[in-house]
């Protein structure tokens, strides 16, 4: 049990490392893209500079009309660059969204991998009890929502053990017997408690195995309740 929790913790730790590195990488790449975007898009003055160069390089462009035309060209370029600024804003917002989505998908991916590993560990360790519900009225105990009928005596034993577990107590056979019979522990025999435990194990174990492994199909017979593919004979 301890080994499993340790490896699960390891998986979580390595998963966290992957998440941190991945998030940093994503943010770095997209920040780089954003910087590149802002640097590479022409600024509002680019068109003016181009028109100015044309004006300077061509000595013949001295007429009033030609100069006016050049100015109009520069103005239309400036108007276009204003729309470019809004495009840049939109692209930037989309980049932020892309970052958020990538980060989220990375986190989910790592979570999936970790969960898969955990699932594999659970499969390996056999039955892992995630819920235990003791119903005294029905004389039934529900393990992971599978109901098992118990005798009164087995029910008492299980209840005592459950209460002890809640208090993190370990009970000897004599103590179990003492709680159930209402006598002092010194007056009880260890063997009596051990017998109770044995009976509980027998009834519960029997039903567990029949539920999980050897199924009894009414009036037809018995069958292993497992997948065909997992059976291997060495």
């Amino acid at each position: 049990m301890r080994g499993i929790t340790a490896t699960a913790a390891d998986a979580r730790r390595s998963g966290n490392r992957v998440v941190i590195i991945g998030v940093i990488a994503i943010v770095a790449i997209l920040t780089l893209a954003a910087v590149f975007l802002f640097l590479s898009l022409p600024d509002a003055n680019a068109f003016n500079a181009r028109v100015e160069r044309i004006f300077v390089e061509n000595d013949a462009l001295t007429g009033q009309g030609e100069i006016k035309l050049l100015e109009i060209l520069a103005l239309s370029g400036t108007a276009f660059s204003e729309t470019l600024v809004s495009y840049r804003m939109v692209i930037f917002v989309l980049l932020v969204f892309a970052t958020a989505l990538l980060v989220a998908s990375l986190v989910f991916l790592v979570m999936l991998i970790t969960l898969n590993r955990r699932m594999a560990q659970i499969e390996r360790s056999g039955i892992q009890v995630s819920s235990l519900l003791i119903s005294r009225d029905e004389k039934t105990v529900y393990l992971n929502n599978m109901g098992f009928k118990l005798t009164d005596a087995a029910m008492e034993t299980l209840s005592v053990l459950a209460e002890a577990r809640l208090d993190d107590d370990v009970m000897t056979g004599a103590e179990i017997e003492a709680v159930i019979s209402g006598r002092k522990p010194e007056d009880c025999e260890e063997a009596a408690g051990a017998t109770r435990i044995k009976r509980l194990r027998d009834t519960l174990g029997n039903q567990l195995v029949s539920e999980l492994l050897v199924k009894n199909i009414a009036r037809r017979g018995y069958m292993l309740a497992i997948d065909k593919d997992v059976i291997r004979v060495i």
Binding site: N48, E52, F55, L61, T62, I67, L70, E71, L75
Partner: peptide, 13 residues
């Protein structure tokens, strides 16, 4: 000479 004024661009000869 040729000269200019910025914002908005105006060209002079």
């Amino acid at each position: 000479y040729k000269a200019k004024r910025d914002k908005p661009l105006a060209l002079y000869y």
